[in-house]
Design a protein around this nucleic acid. Sequence first.
DNA 1: TAGTGGTCTAGACCACTTC
DNA 2: AAGTGGTCTAGACCACTAA
Lengths: 260, 260
Amino acid sequence: MKPNEPVLPSRQIADDLREEIASGQLPPGFKLPAVRVLAARYGVTQGPVLKALAALKAEGLVNAIHGSGVYVREAHPVRRLGPDRYARHHWQATTVEARVDGRADSPAVIQQGGQSQDVRLTEADERTAAALGIEVGAPVYERARVMTRDDTPTHTMTSYYRQADVEGTPLVDARPGIAGRSGGFQVLTDQGLPPHQITEDLAARMPTADEALLLELPAGEPVVELHRVTRTADGRPIEYARGIHAASRFAWSYTFEIPD
Amino acid sequence: MKPNEPVLPSRQIADDLREEIASGQLPPGFKLPAVRVLAARYGVTQGPVLKALAALKAEGLVNAIHGSGVYVREAHPVRRLGPDRYARHHWQATTVEARVDGRADSPAVIQQGGQSQDVRLTEADERTAAALGIEVGAPVYERARVMTRDDTPTHTMTSYYRQADVEGTPLVDARPGIAGRSGGFQVLTDQGLPPHQITEDLAARMPTADEALLLELPAGEPVVELHRVTRTADGRPIEYARGIHAASRFAWSYTFEIPD
DNA sequence: TAGTGGTCTAGACCACTTC
DNA sequence: AAGTGGTCTAGACCACTAA
């Protein structure tokens, strides 16, 4: 028993607001009372109120816009990622066309979301080398993408390929729209390296400052780091990719048989 | 260009400490200078220093112990979870014995970690019912466990079974140690319901207050919520489980073939 | 320009740990 | 008892937003 739990104002304020948000009394998009108003209501100074709001921001419940107000956050739909997203019929037929119109929001490209692309030749770091079965420092093509949905970034995905595997293909054409959205698999197939098997490694953590900025993450939103190694039927690695996902926007699903 | 980025003391302090931790200058377990010392060093009051420390705590980099000091957090070893952990040879042979000695730390049971167990008969909620293919409110056995490693809890795992599937088996014996560690699969096999296929759904988020308390999570540590449905070879669901994992202690790995 | 979120000072006070 | 993290007051000030 803790009979004399002291009532911390900042804690009380946070709890009250959390409750009002959960109950729908403060619906998404709703503007909270001003800091000074809340302070007066609870008979405290600004400090504790700001502390309470910081906690709610850390929980991703509210979103403060500087000179404007504090708003209840809109809930984002969760996208469920299963093996189906790699299904052959998604990319098999898709001839890789050169969309050189440059419109980043070209409907054919974005398909429920856009992406930027940045291709460069670089050297394999330790993990990339291990995944692709090459030596550290060997030349690899890096294809960095930032995926967007509803005009806000949802995740990054940076792929690495052995230089020889993709040299001269549309994949290493830096123009935006080229080989977007799984086009990579089609290109590899054209190169005689059809993808067959995928290994995905997942881990969750808090974002670095850079990641939080890039993905426009609210304070207190974790990320999921995903590492993917794609291999041909005979086990040869052809792509290593690592992505950072805003955790609240995704769920992963895997089905497998129990091994012996 | 932002030439005149103002230097916020709290930001500066956090950045400096973060850098010193990353560089190993402040190794894990090391005690940081006292709040008042840092304040004097930077020529500020306690406020900004506490704010900086709050940020580091939120990132999981440091751990404050009240009257004692602020310490650089120890890194825990990461356990990699692949399908192998369900392999038959792990539980097939393991005859389910009744370990009624009551010693929770009996070596045969803990096997690199302990677990508590709590069994009760309850009613299926919506998700459980959907997973097990039964009606909402139907009776199910709930087997709640808290897994421990190095004397600190790492994750919870709560399984649900149709009442008829496990009635009278060691699984529903609440005595600790009974049917621990995957013993559930052996029991189901004995019941003529050998597990064959598993579907796992994962999502990451910040913990609720309850979860943070139960798992002794430091501020700023996310959790991974895992839902598992186990089925027999003919697709009949026999177990639904949901677990909460301390994110920093696990990584998940899945390998699958690209579908058509 | 008025109202907003946000940072900060200077100091008081409390709770906890360590010696 | 001394030192620690942590919350709070009262008020100043700044940066941003909206009308």
